[in-house]
Amino acid sequence: MEKIAVSLNHITKTYDKGKVLAVDDVSLQVKQGELFGLIGPDGAGKTSIFRILTTLLLANGGTANVAGYDLVKDFREIRNRVGYMPGKFSLYQDLTIQENLDFFANVFGTSMAQNYELIQDIYDQIKPFKDRRAGKLSGGMKQKLALCCALIHKPEVLLLDEPTTGVDVVSRKEFWDMLKRLKQQGITILVSTPYMDEAKLCERIALMQQGRLMSVNTPDNIVKDFPAKLYAVKSKNVYALLIDLRQLAEVQSCYAFGEFLHVTLKSDKVDGEDWLRHVAERKGHEQVLVKLIEPSIEDSFIRLMNEEE
């Protein structure tokens, strides 16, 4: 039987004396060694969940376990066993890489040498700059340093709150590669992100919106659950096409996705592609291109959001 590294049971969190509902009855289980993603926009409740799991916040209702320990009773045990990178974590800007690492190693009662093999892979990339102050590092390097700091005591569970927000594409790719390698070392990783395209890099994901879980599954299954056929449509003037298509009674949804529009119909047609092309051309659009496509996580997210409303 698989061991559960993190489990939440009906966790609820409110702020302002119950006025703001940040986390709404969330139940979730992360298996040991899993790379699990919490996907959702700002305000979805991701940070609150991380703070509850790191024992920084007390939930208003529900129970939770991390690494087999109860969040409230055994909070000290948990604090020894998790590695945490807060969303706005920015390290000590006036300390060098080396000093930051030494300091955090010390705080966790260990030394860099003790768990060197775990961070070596990441540390090697920033080693040439080890005497540079953290404030003078690029976003990508800061992120690597922060990850090193979170790993320095060899945690069982790694909790990363939006580690890639505000970081450029190149650094984001590198970061996810690092997470994959860490996963191979058996560390359970719970990571949150507002970027839908990063969802497919996780083994399982939870789609969150306004404190609620909309869906928890593997990225593949979430996409498979998409209930309708999805068409990508484009023409010379995409914006005009968007307006025209939305006015059609048969069209259920129509959103811009990159250079295409993603369209679903109220009732799936066998010849949906032909129908759409026909409709578009009748409205006077030129260079119309229609194809049946696989939905992305973002398509699913929008769909689920609309269903919730």
Partner: peptide
């Protein structure tokens, strides 16, 4: 649109298109 949900992001772009037109 940093941190905004995908649906709102699209609605936002609708507004941008409208402004541009």
């Amino acid at each position: 649109t940093g941190g905004v949900d995908p649906l709102t992001r699209r609605q936002f772009w609708d507004m941008i298109y409208e402004a541009a037109s």
